[in-house]
Amino acid sequence: MTELARYNDRLYTKLELNSLGGSHKYRAARHIVQRAIERGDIVPGHTTVIEKTGGNFGFGLLAACYRHDVQVDLAIGLSFSPLKRKLLECFGARLIGKDMLRQGLTPREVVEHHVQCQEQLGRQYYYTDQFNNLDGVEAHRLSTGPELAAQLIEQGVGKRILFVGCAGTGASFTGVTQSLIDHGFDVDAVLVEPAECDIRKGIFGDHRLEGMAVGVPPPFLDWSLVNEVCAVSLEETLDAQRHFYRHNGIHIGNTSAGCFAVAKQLLDRNDYQDKVVVTMAYDSGLWYADILEEAGEAV
C-alpha cells in the first residue's frame, strides 16, 4: 500500500511513486501479466512480453515479469526520457527497433512488425497492449481505488471527494474514480490536461507533462465521470513541484505536479468548499531533470 500524504485538512496525495517499478503503472502491469498467465497467454520461461511505452509501464512490466521468468521487449519513442531508456536496458529490458524508430516508424509500428515476424525472430510474443487492455482499468478499480478509499475512511474525511487526475490511457482515472463511487463516496472528478492540449477535441500540442495527453484520445477515459477539465501550464507545474517538495520533502513528477497545481487552485473554489481534494503522485520528478533547463531554470 502506498502512503497517503496530507497537505492540509482538505488536500491529500496518494504517493504512487513509491510503488514497485516507481509508478502507478506497476499496478496495471502486474494485473495484466497475472491475468495473461492465468489464461495461458503468457507461458513463463517461454513467452516474451512486448509493449510500446514511454517508460513507466516498462518499469512496471519488468517488476511484474521478473518473478515469472518472463522477458520484456520494449519499443520506446526517441523523444521520451533518455534516462528511462538507459535504465530499462540496465534492468534487463530489450529495447527493440531503434533503427526503425530513427527511420521514422512509430513505436506501435515497431511492435506490430515484431509480432508479425516473431517466428523468424525466434520469439513467442504476448503484446500487453496497455492502450487496449481492459485489465488495466480493472487493476485500478480493484487495487488503487480500494486502497485509497480505505485510507480516506481512516483519515475520517467524510464522503464528499474531489478527485483530480490526468489521463494517458485513462485507466487509472476511470478505475480510481469508479472505485471511490463503488465505496460509497460522493465524487466529483476533474481531468487535468496540458495548456497546449484539448483532449476532448483531440488536440495534442507539444508539451513536457509526460503521462498525460499522450497524442491519442484516452481509450479508457469514461467521460461521464468527468465533471470538469482544467488546463495547467509548465510554469504552474514547476511551481507546484517546488511547493510540494518544500512541504512534503518529496520530488514528484511533472504530471503529478500538474494535478497538484490544479488541486491547490480548486481548494478555494466556492463550489468545492465542502469536498476533500485528492490527487495522485504518479511517479518521481527525478526522471525529468532536463525539464528545468528547457524551462529556463538553473539545474
Rank of each mutant, 00 (worst) to 15 (best):
V226K: 10
E3M: 13
E89H: 04
S143Q: 07
R108P: 00
L134Q: 02
Q120K: 15
G92N: 13
G97T: 02
M212N: 03
S256A: 15
M100G: 07
I50T: 08
V110E: 12
L292E: 06
F220A: 04
V164I: 13
S19N: 15
I37T: 13
V277Y: 01
A63H: 09
D135L: 08
T106K: 08
N8L: 13
T48S: 15
A189T: 14
A281R: 02
V110W: 12
I96D: 05
G122R: 12
H68K: 03
N8E: 11
G253M: 10
I199H: 00
G258Y: 03
D222C: 11
T144Y: 10
A150F: 02
R85W: 02
G40K: 12
G184L: 10
L83V: 05
E16S: 07
G175K: 00
E297M: 12
Q155I: 01
L121D: 06
H183E: 10
G156C: 08
Y125H: 03
G97Q: 05
P219A: 04
H243R: 07
N56E: 05
Q273P: 01
A261T: 13
N227G: 15
Q71H: 12
R85T: 07
E236G: 08
D73G: 08
P194T: 03
I50K: 02
K159R: 14
E228K: 09
E38L: 05
E297N: 10
F244P: 01
L62D: 04
S233F: 07
S233T: 15
A289T: 07
V111Y: 11
E138D: 06
E154Y: 03
S179Q: 08
I291W: 01
L191C: 12
